[in-house]
Write a protein that binds this DNA or RNA. Sequence first.
DNA 1: CAGCATCCGTACTGATACTG
DNA 2: CAGTATCAGTACGGATGCTG
Lengths: 137, 137
Amino acid sequence: MSDDAARLEAVVTQFRKAGINGALADCPVRGILDKISDKWSMLIVLELAPGAMRFNQIRRAIPDISQKMLTQTLKELQRDGLVSRTVFPTVPPAVEYELTELGVSLLRPFSILVEWADARYQQIERARSDFDAQAVA
Amino acid sequence: MSDDAARLEAVVTQFRKAGINGALADCPVRGILDKISDKWSMLIVLELAPGAMRFNQIRRAIPDISQKMLTQTLKELQRDGLVSRTVFPTVPPAVEYELTELGVSLLRPFSILVEWADARYQQIERARSDFDAQAVA
DNA sequence: CAGCATCCGTACTGATACTG
DNA sequence: CAGTATCAGTACGGATGCTG
């Protein structure tokens, strides 16, 4: 438990780490976290976990993503080095997306977060009901 | 490693878990993740990690949050059962915010994610530079 | 001290139509 | 198949002023 306390303090320190111009908002860790916590990034990374996929294959796997958002998010993931893009010069063209080593390394921390959410979401929903009931009264 | 593969498959399953009306977008796990990944929630949870704090104390600790967002985010965290709010009927009023057991339980998964970001952000920034240089060429 | 209410700009998103 | 381009709606977030 004191181990937890120590690592927690370290985490807070990392989180306060300022960016180039010294502003808290430029903390590189926060920047990364913002990126990966957008609406679709995580979902795509998870879909790619089992192996390479083609554009429309990913699209079918995530029915409620728009084509624009898929393109855009894949490009960001590629830019961040989490996903690689390979074009096969066939007709019609085929493009494969695959997690890089960096992308794969994200799976573990993320899966831990998902496990937390899965273990606790009922508790959270109960808390919300209680809170809302309280608010009415 | 096959252990990782097994837990990963479980995570994907959780992530596909549909909500009440069966739509993917209502996946309870995704709902929770959306919540905690907003601009300020995590920051506040981290600030509260060492112990209870008062409203303006938190505000000073996070200089770039507006009063509106602090109020709003604290209310959401309270609604989700992650933070407790205690009012001391003094003049002027004092209000203390503190992590609940549920809030504390989030520290570990989150700290793991922060540690990942801290260990990798330089690699990500390098990937971005490379990508942008490539795009120009 | 600890909020609430309002206004307003912008950034994110989706729908739609078009291309190599 | 795998995108690009454009437009329009919305939700997020900040600045400001006011209250118990």
